[in-house]
């Protein structure tokens, strides 16, 4: 098994700190390093090394995997955020473009409505004219009909009055001789028919 340089560096620094600490402790009031202390130091050192190696052996892969996975997730998230940022930027640009066109669009819609309104107005006026023309024609027909009716009524009234007057005159003026002549004429007509 080969440990990387960093591992050995960390172990060395730790040991160095431990020796410095031990040395400081003897300098502070103790009378020299005792063999038991040296022995303890060696044991601690060995223990520490074994612990370090075990930790390295057991935790290295999961730790590496954890960090790799974390890195990948972060990269993925970063890429996603980047994509969303790009999308948002595009949307922003699009909206900006739309806002720019909005006024023109509103103007176009307004113009369109104005044109439609004008056309509708013309259409209504045209229809009203046609309707007025139709009504005028109908009124003329109605007037003509009423005139005809009035004429007919007048004619009927005239006929009635004329005949009434004629009847009265004839009743007054027909003499018995006239009556006999009328009967005679009738008999002559019958005779004429039988001859024919």
């Amino acid at each position: 098994m080969k440990f990387p340089f960093r591992f050995w560096l960390v172990v060395g620094v730790f040991l160095l700190i431990s020796y410095i600490d031990l040395y400081s402790a003897t300098e502070a009031g103790e009378h020299g390093v005792t063999p038991s202390q040296i022995k303890n130091l060696i044991w601690w050192t060995v223990n520490f090394l074994v612990l370090t190696i075990l930790l390295y052996k057991l935790l290295r892969k999961p730790m590496v995997n954890f960090f790799v996975s974390r890195k990948e997730n972060l990269v993925k998230e970063y890429e996603e955020l980047l994509a969303r940022k790009k999308e948002a930027e595009a949307k922003y640009l699009e909206l900006q473009e739309k806002i720019k066109n909005l006024k023109a669009e509103a103007e176009a819609i307004y113009q369109n409505y104005v044109e439609q309104g004008l056309k509708e107005k013309e259409k209504i006026i045209e229809e009203a004219k046609l309707q007025a023309e139709r009504i005028r024609e109908q009124v003329q027909v109605y007037i003509a009909q009423e005139m005809e009716k009035a004429k007919d009524l007048l004619r009927i009234e005239l006929a009635k009055e004329s005949v009434k007057l004629a009847e009265e005159l004839l009743k007054k003026n027909l003499t018995p001789e006239d009556q006999k002549r009328l009967v005679k004429n009738f008999i002559e007509q019958i005779k004429g028919r039988s001859l024919n």
């Binding site: 004619r155 006929a159 009635k160 004329s162 005949v163 009847e167 027909l174 009328l182 007509q189």
Partner: peptide
């Protein structure tokens, strides 16, 4: 051949 009917005819004509 009555005068009345002749007058009626006359009325119709008018």
């Amino acid at each position: 051949g009555t005068v009345k009917s002749q007058l009626e005819k006359f009325k119709e004509i008018i």
